[in-house]
Nucleic acid binder design. Structure first.
Length: 489
RNA sequence: GGUGGGUUGGCCGAGAGGCGAGGCAACGGACUGCAAAUCCGUGUACACGGGUUCAAAUCCCGUACCCACCUCCA
């Protein structure tokens, strides 16, 4: 079985053939760090994290680059509004992003380059483009440099558009037209606007002080860290045009083969519209995590296909959380009869390691089919159901297999609850607390057991209610009563 | 105007010519002192109108509604 991926450029699902056997180079457009990350922002990171984990699991040596855009118009505008330096805002938002991604167990990329750290690389690329006749400095003294769209006949190939069919650019007004040869030409370099922009946002260049245009950073950084040809380029659908089209145009015009496959994830919207337009901040990651755990939020995103539009709702999120607890519940019940951590090696050790128990075929087939996580999750549930049946007969090799498969499947999806990547609930103070609570609850449970032997049901239920009032659930199992601290949903 | 996509049962969400993905919720049953958890069972859903076919949610034509992108939004 081979992995097949939907390639935006060819508009079809194709076999994944890496440039170099056994290796995969992936570049994903990260965020412009201009504001706190919301649910929509992190979907892309989760989707591509799954791609990365799957390739890794399948034995590929993956180099995963995700950039951070830390200088652009919006950052400058917002920083000015807030009266702080742009780099202060960008860095603060970058840290918020890191925190948000960590809270949903997105692995840190192999490297996370930022635009401001790669100005020389971008200038070099711009020079190449000018030398090849595909870019030109504006003649109005603005210090801008533009890509010459008309000089590149293939322009539009990624998004299947003809230059002449595109709507005229909004900025096709006289001042811009004085700079550009064609309204569709896009900025590679933006001359410093002394009157409105801080000097700290200007870098020296052969065209005068200025800052990079948006698209050039990705071309320069992908080239630097992955080479002039690499396997997969990813990002949100909105980036197809103009961002990715422009990236590809300028890279290829510079003589680089660039990406072999283009993958784009769909949006999460609320009330049918983009989150950036939504009111309030209830969808910021820290807010959402007050309602569900990070692992549940991640599960919610993985339960839908990455190319499917998701209409976000807290109801659906709660449902997903309830569904995920069913999986955890199986693992917990297995652990309670001794099939616990020893049988479920934590996923980081497993990533890349040959699995001693193979993943279910249906799961592999689902993942190979353009990362069919919904079907993969269905296999997960099938395995959990089988495991639950086996659980009734106590420990068995079949049960151990089921547990391992469930844990491995979860690991591939980045959803293994025992993965240390999750914010730990097992710090030493927590485990001491758990031991203390256990001692107290066990005392009560012993009393309840006595009452049950005496068939004093009223007393037994009263004790259970008392424990419940403290937020602890008691379940009677064949192996005796078990208490848990259910996650509030 | 151009480009890409969508409309599936109470809800979420897959599938892409035949065989009812999966989950949540609901109902019935088993288990239980009662619960909880778990297991078993129950639902004839594919926007609308035509067509192709032995067979259409799936292919074709048309219609309606919705969304995204078209120069710096994941």
């Amino acid at each position: 079985m081979t992995l097949r991926l939907y390639d935006t450029a060819t508009r079809e699902v194709r076999d994944f053939v890496p440039l170099e056997e056994g290796k995969a180079g992936i570049y994903v457009c990260g965020l412009t760090v201009q504001s706190e990350p919301h649910v929509g922002h992190v979907r892309s990171a989760v989707n591509f994290d799954v791609l990365r984990r799957w390739l890794t699991h399948q034995g590929y040596q993956v180099t995963f680059i995700r950039n951070v855009t830390d200088i652009d118009d919006k950052i400058l505008a917002k920083a000015a509004e807030q009266g702080r330096p742009w780099f202060n805002l960008a860095y603060a938002m970058h840290r918020e992003l890191d925190k948000a991604l960590a809270s949903i167990n997105v692995l840190p990329p192999t490297y996370e380059p930022s635009a401001t750290a790669h100005v020389p690389e971008m200038l070099e690329l711009i020079q190449t483009l000018i030398a090849r006749g595909h870019a030109y400095p504006a003649e109005d003294g603005s210090g801008d440099v533009y890509f010459d769209v008309r000089s590149w006949p293939a322009y539009g190939e990624l998004t299947n558009q003809g230059v002449d069919d595109m709507a005229p650019a909004e900025d096709a007004d006289p001042p811009m037209m004085a700079r550009k040869r064609d309204p569709r030409d896009f900025a590679l370099w933006k001359g410093w606007k002394k009157e409105s922009e801080p000097e700290s946002a200007a870098w020296p260049s052969p065209y005068g002080p200025g800052r990079p245009g948006w698209h050039i950073e990705c071309s320069a950084m992908a080239g630097k860290y992955l080479g002039t040809a690499f396997d997969i380029h990813g990002g949100g659908v909105d980036l197809r045009f103009p961002h990715h089209e422009n990236e590809q145009a300028q890279s290829r015009a510079a003589g680089h083969a660039f990406a072999s496959y283009w993958l784009h994830n769909a949006w999460i919207t609320t009330a049918g519209e983009k989150m950036s337009k939504s009111l309030g901040n209830s969808l910021l990651i820290p807010e959402v995590l007050k309602r569900v755990r990070g692992i549940e939020l991640r599960f919610y995103m993985i339960a839908a296909h990455y190319r499917s539009h998701v209409e976000f709702s807290f109801e659906a999120l709660d449902e997903a959380a309830a569904g995920f607890r069913r999986i955890e519940n199986f693992l917990d019940r297995a652990a309670a009869i001794g099939i616990g951590h020893d049988e479920r090696p934590t996923s980081p050790a497993r990533v890349g390691a040959p699995a001693d128990v193979p993943l279910p075929d249906a799961f592999v087939a689902a993942m190979d089919d353009d990362l069919g996580t919904p079907a993969a999750v269905a296999v997960l549930y099938d395995t959990v159901r089988e495991g639950n049946k086996l659980l009734a007969d106590g420990p068995s090799p079949a049960l151990i297999t089921a547990v391992r498969q469930v844990v491995d499947m979860l690991g591939v999806l980045g959803l293994d609850p025992t993965d240390p990547g999750w914010p730990s609930a097992t710090s030493s103070s927590d485990s001491r607390m758990a031991a203390a609570v256990d001692a107290l609850v066990q005392g009560l449970l012993a009393e309840r057991a006595d009452a049950r032997v005496a068939k004093d049901w009223a007393r037994a239920d009263a004790i259970r209610d008392q424990i419940k009032a403290a937020g602890i659930e008691v379940e009677d199992t064949p192996a005796g009563p078990v208490w848990t601290l259910p996650t509030t949903g």
